[in-house]
Write a protein that binds this DNA or RNA. Structure first.
Lengths: 217, 217
DNA sequence: ATGCCGAATGCTGTATACAGAACTCAGCAC
DNA sequence: GTGCTGAGTTCTGTATACAGCATTCGGCAT
């Protein structure tokens, strides 16, 4: 039955990410360890361990004597992160096993189309884009690269809140996904990579439009 | 006078990296927190914080109940890491400010040539390659990208020990650096990126030749 | 009213304490 | 001799304690 017994620090980390995704923390907000630990029902030790881990991921900042705070967001950082992720996902796709890609291409197409359909079941919506990309890169043998991409996506998620709930944007993404899948079906890697980059650029622009010009809250 | 008063956890982290670079730990080795903390003259708390930070960088692994150990190395992981770094440094170079590149190109050339010279002062040798690449990317405005590259290089350093002290290899690298600098002087970005990738590939091959086939110690 | 100073408070950074999991090894059955 | 078992030991994961820095706020001088 596999009783999952993970360290508290990891559970705390997940919980913090979850709350951040739901907007229960705001970027720049400073963290009171005692209060937060109490609220989470753990001691300061695993909380601090989780914070240090998140700090290395760039989601949290710390300053000697001042403690931790959620890293401020900014338009420039968003652009920077996006540029990195484009490069990494392109690499992952290019170096994926061709056979595996051919094998999953139909599924990639199907899932994109299923999502375009009027009412996708709720709950799957938020995760759709992530899930699709994860499937796309499931044939990437470079484990390190996959982990890195996942980690960076966590930091990008902080920006995606501005478009959460906007179905039109996700539909547009699904269309772009269809295009990528089609390229893979055709076995045209160059086009697939180009389409993937276009997908990223398009998503980036949608978010940029909605990010306040300065401060980015 | 700027008395540097950094948190112990960071000093510990640096010390561990230093020791790892000098081969005082071997990949796969497991860590006894009490002993190591004592040896470093700190308590377990900042040591564990340093270990958790290094874990996120991929230099250390942990398993619930078993504690921490230095992450095992492997030929495949080395290749994986190299592929990532090629992509990221290429990106960094391509997106660097052209004017800044023109400005530093002469220095890049000079440093590469100075190093090729018979006897470069000792101590500068080990850091030469890193320093040169850092200078090359000094015009990259993407701070996040620069941090990421630095972080990944730390993990690569674990593999470079096999060629440490081999001056021939560094001279070859210096020649490749000259080529890159020359491209930059000519303002030929495409060629510069290609030369940079060649530099990486070449270095990778030199190291691969010397990595034991299995286990990678 | 404004700005400086100092006590008081709160919070972080580090050390230590404690409970329970994992490992070790002697003893015993076979 | 080999394999199992269980007490003892070691170590980790988490909680708690403590010292010192940072911040706040009231009082005083200007």
């Amino acid at each position: 039955m596999a009783i999952e017994r993970r360290p508290l620090r990891e559970q705390v980390k997940d919980e913090l990410l979850e709350r951040l995704g739901h907007g229960r923390f705001t970027p720049g907000e400073s963290i009171n360890e005692v209060h937060l630990a109490e609220e989470l029902g753990v001691s300061r030790t695993p909380l601090r361990e989780a914070l240090i881990s998140l700090e290395r991921e760039g989601i949290i900042t710390s300053e000697r004597g001042k403690g931790f705070r959620f890293a401020p967001t900014g338009r420039q950082e968003f652009l920077d992160l996006t540029a990195i992720l484009i490069a990494l996902e392109s690499l992952a796709l290019r170096t994926s096993d061709r056979e595996h890609l051919s094998a999953i291409a139909p599924r990639l197409l199907a899932e994109a189309r299923a999502f375009s359909a009027p009412q996708a079941p709720h709950g799957t919506i938020e995760r759709y884009d992530d899930a699709w990309h994860a499937l796309l890169l499931s044939g990437c043998a470079n484990a390190r690269l996959r982990e890195l991409i996942d980690s960076l996506k966590l930091t990008l998620h902080r920006y995606e809140r501005v478009v959460v709930g906007d179905h039109a944007i996700l539909e547009r993404a699904a269309e772009e996904h269809e295009r990528i899948a089609q390229c893979l079906l055709d076995g045209d890697m160059e086009q697939a990579v180009a389409a993937l980059e276009a997908n990223w650029t398009s998503g980036m622009e949608r978010i940029m439009e909605r990010l306040p010009a300065v401060g980015t809250r």
